[in-house]
Simulated scan of single mutants.
Amino acid sequence: MTGALTALFAIIAREALRFVHQRERFVAALVRPLVWLLVFAAGFRAALGLSITPPYQTYITYETYIVPGLLGMILLFNGMQSSLSLVYDREMGSMKVLLTAPLPRWWLLFAKLLGSTAISILQAYVFLAVAAVFGIRLLAVGYVAMLPALVLAGLMLGALGLALSSFIKQLENFAGVMNFVIFPMFFLSSALYPLWKMAESSRLLHDICAFNPFTHAVELIRFAAYGDFNGMALLWTLLALAVFGALAVWGYDPARGMTRAR
């Protein structure tokens, strides 16, 4: 147990140091959602009407609606970028040192996942603070209530990144795969538009968005931000976390996964 905890804290500390030394990563994580919040949302506000649907009890501005989706964007991009470091470590050889530690492989991957999730949550709350400066504030209880939702969503999206990184051999291929996964997941979700808006356009599009695990992660955050609970979103997010986590563990098993010796 002592060795497992030592490895856990060491891996989390390594993630934190890597994040501190990559300041541009922190800036980039804030610029993307802030551009959507302050530029795109201003243009879409007049074009998109939002009805009173749970968890909202009154009409809201478009900027307020997309805040949970932009928090999900931060978690999604950071989860993928953290997994990119695994591909880099594998090419440099340091991954072999980590995975040969006398500890269960799932524990090492969980430590990596926990470290990247902690960084994602830090970035999410900094974004909320900047948004509050521009007058976009949530309920006071929401800032606390959404923490478990952010943790669960961050773990799920980080596990997706780990699963993808186990199937990618070369660093240069990961960027293309990231774009192929990130943008469909983000745009085919409720991050930018409510599902009822999607249904007005296309029933098939609505069904795709409803099946997207990123949609349920965003809705889990959205409801938590207003002190509400969405059991279906919680169930789907947990299910996706279990599936992605299992794929990651399988992928990093040298006997069965895609990282076995060539």
Rank of each mutant, 00 (worst) to 15 (best):
G72N: 04
G72I: 01
G72D: 04
M73S: 13
I74L: 08
I74Q: 02
I74R: 01
L75Q: 09
L75R: 02
L75E: 03
L75A: 15
L76Y: 02
L76S: 01
F77K: 03
N78P: 01
N78E: 13
N78L: 09
N78I: 06
G79S: 13
G79D: 07
M80I: 13
M80K: 05
M80T: 07
Q81L: 11
Q81M: 12
S83Y: 08
L84R: 11
L84G: 07
S85C: 04
L86C: 07
V87I: 15
V87E: 05
D89R: 06
D89I: 08
D89V: 06
D89T: 02
E91D: 11
M92F: 07
G93K: 11
S94L: 08
S94A: 10
S94G: 00
V97L: 13
V97P: 00
V97M: 13
V97F: 10
L98T: 13
L98Q: 06
L98R: 07
L98S: 01
L99P: 01
T100L: 12
T100F: 09
T100M: 14
T100V: 12
T100S: 15
T100P: 04
A101W: 06
P102K: 14
P102R: 09
L103R: 08
L103Q: 11
L103T: 03
P104M: 10
P104R: 15
P104H: 09
R105T: 13
R105V: 10
R105S: 09
W106I: 09
W106H: 11
W106E: 14
W107M: 12
L108D: 03
L108R: 04
L109G: 09
F110C: 06
A111S: 15
K112C: 02
K112P: 00
K112A: 11
L113S: 12
G115N: 13
G115M: 12
G115I: 12
T117H: 09
A118C: 11
I119N: 07
S120A: 15
I121K: 01
I121E: 03
I121Y: 01
L122H: 00
Q123Y: 14
Q123M: 12
Q123F: 10
A124K: 02
Y125T: 02
Y125F: 12
F127E: 02
F127K: 03
L128R: 03
L128C: 12
L128H: 03
L128G: 04
A129P: 00
V130P: 00
V130N: 06
V130S: 02
V130D: 09
A131K: 00
A131Y: 02
A131W: 01
A132E: 07
A132Q: 09
A132W: 02
V133Y: 15
V133P: 04
V133E: 07
F134G: 15
G135I: 10
G135E: 11
I136N: 04
I136A: 07
R137Y: 00
R137D: 09
R137W: 06
L138V: 10
L138A: 14
L138N: 05
L139C: 03
A140D: 12
A140Q: 10
G142Y: 03
G142S: 08
G142H: 05
Y143R: 13
V144D: 06
V144M: 13
V144H: 02
V144A: 15
A145T: 14
A145I: 08
M146K: 07
M146P: 01
L147H: 03
L147F: 15
P148N: 08
A149E: 08
A149R: 05
V151F: 13
L152M: 11
L152S: 00
L152K: 05
A153I: 04
A153V: 01
